[in-house]
């Protein structure tokens, strides 16, 4: 089934002049321009935005939450527990 995964983008919207961009959610898209279009279609249907930023989720650098425990091996630069953010080399099975 894994034929054509589109990468995940995080979406930030400035709803009005004077406010900062706020995280609104995420979209999948095949490229940057498409991500912008999708973000606009999904998150500004009711005039909720004057400016949109989209960033590939895998490019966000995030801090460790204070209470993270060793069990789940939190990488400093992965914001979600997303299996596809982790690159597994060829030849490694069952991952």
């Amino acid at each position: 089934m894994a034929d054509e995964n589109w990468p995940l983008y995080e979406v930030f919207i400035r709803s009005r002049s004077g406010l900062s961009h706020r995280h609104a959610g995420s979209v999948h898209a095949a490229g940057d321009q498409m991500a912008l279009d999708h973000a606009r279609d999904v998150y500004t249907r009711r005039n909720e935005g004057v400016s949109i930023w989209v960033v590939r989720s895998s490019e966000i650098v995030a801090s460790d939450p204070a209470e993270s425990a060793a069990f789940f091996d939190p990488a400093a630069d992965k914001i979600y527990r997303h299996p596809t953010f982790y690159e597994i080399p060829d030849g490694v099975e069952n991952l």
Binding site: W6, V27, H28, H38, D41, R45
Partner: peptide
Amino acid sequence: PELEEELANAN
């Protein structure tokens, strides 16, 4: 073909 396109098409 993808959920995001549903929104675009409806728009």
